[in-house]
Design a protein around this nucleic acid. Sequence first.
RNA 1: GGCUGGAUAGCUCAGCUGGUUAGAGCGCGGCACUCAUAAUGCCGAGGUCGGCAGUUCAAGUCUGCCUCCAGCUACCA
Length: 575
Amino acid sequence: MSGSKPFYITTPIYYVNDKPHIGHAYTSLACDVMARFKRLDGFDVKFLTGTDEHGQKVEKSANAKGVDPKTFTDSVSQNFRDLAAFMGYSNDDFIRTTEERHKKACQALWMRLQERGDIYLGGYEGWYAVRDEAFYTEDELEKKPDGTRIAKASGAEVEWVEEPSYFFKLSAYEDKLLKFYDENPNFILPKSRRNEVISFVKGGLQDLSVSRTTFKWGVPVPGDDDHIMYVWMDALTNYITAVGYPDEEAEQYKKYWPADVHMVGKDILRFHAVYWPAFLMAADLPLPKRVFAHGWWTNEGQKISKSLGNVIDPIDLVNKYGLDQVRYFMLREVPFGNDGDFAHSAMVTRMNSELANDLGNLSQRVLSMIVKNCDEAIPAPGAYSEEDQVMIAQAYNLVSGVREKIDVQAFNDAIETIWLVIRAANAYVDKQAPWKLKKEDPDRMATVLYVLAETIRNVALVLQPFMPTSMDKMLGLLEIAPENRNFEACGEAGALMAGTKLEKPEGVFPRFIDHEELEKTYEGKDGTFLIKRALRQNPKNKETVFEIEFKDGKLDELNSADLEKAKEKGALTQV
RNA sequence: GGCUGGAUAGCUCAGCUGGUUAGAGCGCGGCACUCAUAAUGCCGAGGUCGGCAGUUCAAGUCUGCCUCCAGCUACCA
């Protein structure tokens, strides 16, 4: 696994003033899947995430709590580290903008830009809203009867401020940026976002104010203590801080920079696709290879906002549906780059139809047959029929197909590619009907089951980046050793050895069954019991079998139809 | 307002450079099977491919116009 091929992927650094939500989880998830995929594919990966801890809002929040900013950020930054651990992210580093290494990098970059004449001292004046940390133009404001002005967009009160400010000569990079976009058509993905960025740049670029004097919580401008650096200048630099900048001879810097992918939400694309490349051009440093802007989630069709109170907490999601299920859903439901809707019904459909029925049941039916009919061991295959060859070829070609999709961040296409094989495998089981071959032609049965086991192995291998825990379990059921789980083992190279003993399989993906009776307590002549969970449900008549728990902890099963009858007769009453 | 991209089966969407009966998943209906997590497979269901007019032997697939929708339109993370 010693990779000679480096791969560097980053999430944005998350602003600590926010509580971690689904958006943060989503960006990092995409990076995690790419990082895991690349590692399995033999790359030497660095996956970076972290927190952005400077700015006026943070300073204010800290003041409001009566603590110094550093103490405050130590605490809130931890929320993001906790989320990463909770979601199973495999980041190799976690950077904080309050770290000394970062301050050094920012100041070094600043001085470099200044030396090259791309940073100059000027003055900034305008209508400023403290609450928004933003300047507004006259037409973005509304005059109130009392003479004060508020920002139309946010309603925040603004004041006229005049302050000296350093500027970055962004205007000088318009043509260079356009040329770069032109020469690197995949620098910004998806394409639609790329068009937006290009049209923005073509519209003309003004110099950028890159320092502030109105608050203190930031990286000091070298040689001018009255100023701190503008947040984006500070924040974007994290990507090179983490690989050792300003030491351009650092091992990590030489290995990993320029980054392969900066993953960002669509709202911060401009900073990554315009400002950041311009800063790097000015510093004469290599530019990242790709900036991918993904979309946002809605909640049951509703736009998510704090004021609506419908913010989605990824921790709640995982507790309700399961970690791998949530990871799968987020990358499966929507073409990566588009906006998506997080709907409970869609989540349940994906879980049950695709994970439990298609994949989980495939492995369960095949492994059960092997354990029951092949001496609890991987059977020895005979010569392959044409249909066997077609099946096995699909399984063996899977990695390369999935790799193509992953390389352009088409996670949803990657999953679809895998599911084509899973569906083909289920069709193959039915067509070959190994349960009939058991009596008619046991050797043939052995071959079919071997082909299926191989298919499951390959499917599980390529699904590892998406669902690490479940696939660990599935590969474990096949007794695949840890060292045989990277992509070199895909295809014939890692083929299952006949005779390998298998344990009796356990379900990998449980079904999710919704029912209004869940959690209700009933009292009857047998005692008081709680309807604990739904074990299974007949999709035709919607009858459900519940697991019920009596007061003494005894468990039993109860059919929903019987429950209804008992309720009608009055034999049971809800407590 | 300007720019860009959309509008295809009940739902969510594929349909590259124009070419015989327009596809998938989910949902729905029927059949088969019984290995498996009440799972699987097969078959089907008469969608004016937003509207109008063109180009062409031939148009969801190109052109124009129209109607809706979405995103972007700078110093806000």
